[in-house]
Design a protein around this nucleic acid. Sequence first.
RNA 1: GGGGGUUUGCCCGAGUGGUUAAAGGGGGCGGACUGUAAAUCCGCUGGCUACGCCUACACAGGUUCGAAUCCUGUAGCCCCCA
Length: 442
Amino acid sequence: MPDKNMPEYNLLDELKWRGLIHQCTDEDGLAKILATGPQAVYIGFDPTADSLHVGSMMQLMMLRRFQQAGHRPIALVGGATGMIGDPSGKSEERNLLSADQLQKNITGVAAQMRQFLHFHDDEQDHDGNQQSNGAVLLNNFEWMSGYSYLEFLRDVGKSFPVGAMMGKESVRSRLDSEAGLSYTEFSYMLLQAYDFVHLSREHGCLIQAGGSDQWGNITAGIDLGRRMLGRQLFGITAPLLTTSDGRKMGKTESGAIWLDPARTSPYQFYQYWRNVDDADVMRCIAYLTEIQRVEYEELAEATQADPGRRVAQNRLAEWLTEFVHGEDGLVNALRASKMLFGGEIGVQSDASLGEIFADVPSREVSREKLDGEGYWIVEALQDAGLVASGGEGRRAVKGGGVYVNNIRANDEKQCLDVSNLASATVMVLRKGKKNYALLRFV
RNA sequence: GGGGGUUUGCCCGAGUGGUUAAAGGGGGCGGACUGUAAAUCCGCUGGCUACGCCUACACAGGUUCGAAUCCUGUAGCCCCCA
């Protein structure tokens, strides 16, 4: 139950001002059932990796917002559907995952969801009311694996007009393309549609949310619900998180931004958000954070007035980093940012350097290199992996793009020795603005 | 099956038998400026044990003191005729 003492808060209004409603099957109907009491809401997650990335954050935050409004979120991981692969928005047939990999992915993803959702029914709220909207994690493999092909065709396939399937954008675009569409992928829609029916029947779930690319799958589920159960289901989609020029957010040249700190360190995560374009930052804040409307307006105004200060970017980066990686993660990210974008790196301890430069690639080099005539800087750059060849290294130094402990080195013949160490065993090399590498002398 | 054309560095694209490691552009990488931005401007952009050496203009051979540039063959792409 929603906390009676909380200020009355209308979920749909909240979603609306945040721009989170892209499409909705029956908004008035949805508003009505939301008003009647707690509802179960489901969003499906594709376990394609053992970590979620920022693309899934939208969906998780969506569930979280529902939960905060007193509703029960159902996070569905697609153990079964993941074996098939959703063709929506994909230009090619997907590789199927092995059962082992799938299990690993589900475990990893489920752990991350705890950051966003409360999974247990709380004992009682302070009015003594039973809190009963703990999130539920389900895996559709549970009900799909035992379903025989024949039964499925009789129960589900029978209620599925091919004409409607052919009309879906996801199918059509693939049929017209060269890549084509396999029967397996074509059938994906039936599985997801059936999930909705199953959840409706077993968990009383009437609402499915998702990204706008899920519209076709969601409406398929709604149709199936009407046919099989004679029940009115609802669908709501959020816009995709894209940049102002239409590219998906959360991707960099070097890959996706993950929630798992082992894949994307808090520092990288923080930096990604801090560098969001002015044109995109307010949308990110609305979509991904719980920053309230008043502050949102202030940030928008501040950005408009003086974009150079980047108050909105900083706030976004700090909010998200703390939310996903905790206070420690944020502190580390801030410390590393300060060091990496600051001036000269003075003498540090090995431990603190190691922590700050946790993301930075490091190589071990024999300490003897520093003896005698020293360690030629070009060779050091190569050993650190910052340049591919000696020639490139020389050019980089000549062009003024190489720094040792953040001090520019401009002599290509320079040799490094013990005095260039930033800590007992570590030297910090940098090429250009942001390319760091550590050398550990052992 | 016959005839013609084309093939250049990460990509596009110039190229005279002799400073051609190959014009120009794009991209990439540095630098300046800036907001750890965009735009702009500047430099670099085959390798090396480096004032020198090596490998490069589809591939293999040949003609030349000398070839990306001429000849022959092979392969890829394009066009025309049957």
